[in-house]
């Protein structure tokens, strides 16, 4: 691949809550069309990192650039603009419980596009069909299973044809088959739509199956311990911790 432009760039990020610092001086780039994995042990601040990248929480210091635009200290207007180019799948799906699936997906389109309501309806059905939920338009989130909620959440994240989709633990709580299907879906989206994808996960099979770039966060040193293609990292682990993580603690001979 030729040198591609950085879609997202994190510069000297310090992340934490109040006096409680989770990560220090994190620097990394996410290239366009990448499937970028943020991995690390429980509680090391992966979800917090995602919240900072998506603009939900301000970093203690440092900046996030999206398409070269400073996202962290941007005006509300610029920020909203960037946010509309983001699709986010939350850990629990985060569907609006008072709306049907179709309405959930229609909401961002109603707010930000000029489509007529019949067009929106069609598009919502299409997005649901893309994630394998055709026919579930009029169901409420409480009437579908956890895995289906995740897929519906993904359909909503794709509503505005985003340039970047963020996933928080996409395979948590899914059976192996559904989780594989979701991985395939992620690859499809990436390949057909050229979407840049950022995934927080510690599901090893997903990491190796979909990721082509990654960072490894470490809670003890509060830093990025490793970066690069996860498969390469497995071949040449830069240190013991990364090796342990990528081999489920079984070390070299796994």
């Amino acid at each position: 691949m030729t040198e591609s432009q950085a879609k997202i760039e994190a510069k000297d990020l310090n992340i934490g809550y109040g006096d409680f610092v989770l990560l220090k001086d994190a620097n990394f780039q996410i290239n366009e069309h990448d499937i970028f994995i943020i991995m690390g042990g429980s509680g090391c601040g992966k979800s917090s990192m995602l919240r900072v990248l998506t603009g939900l929480v301000k970093p203690l210091s440092g900046k996030v650039f999206v398409d070269g635009v400073d996202f962290t200290s941007a005006s509300v207007k610029t920020k909203n603009k960037i946010m509309q180019g983001n699709g986010i799948l939350y850990q629990s799906g985060a569907l609006f419980s008072s709306m049907t699936l179709a309405e959930n997906i229609a909401l961002p389109m109603q707010l930000y596009t000029e489509y007529s309501s019949s067009q929106i309806k069609e598009l919502a059905s299409l997005k649901l069909a893309l994630v394998g939920l055709a026919g579930f338009e009029d169901y409420y989130p409480s009437e579908i299973s956890g895995g289906m909620k995740k897929r519906a959440g993904l359909a909503r994240a794709l509503a505005l044809d985003p340039e970047i989709v963020y996933f928080d633990e996409p395979s948590a709580g899914l059976d192996p088959v559904s989780s594989k299907l979701l991985d395939d879906l992620i690859l499809d989206i990436n390949q057909t739509l050229g979407t840049t994808i950022v995934i927080v996960t510690h599901e090893l099979s997903s990491i190796f199956a979909v990721g082509n770039n990654s960072i490894f966060l470490d809670g003890e040193t509060k830093s990025i311990l490793a970066r690069g293609n996860p498969n390469e990292l497995l071949k040449n682990p830069p240190n013991e911790k990364v090796l342990q993580f990528l081999t489920r603690g079984e070390g070299k001979n796994a």
């Binding site: 919240r51 998506t54 603009g55 939900l56 909203n80 939350y90 985060a94 609006f96 961002p108 909503r156």
Partner: peptide, 10 residues
Amino acid sequence: EEVDALKTMG
């Protein structure tokens, strides 16, 4: 996380 979802949709 519905409120988060709203916020990140702008």
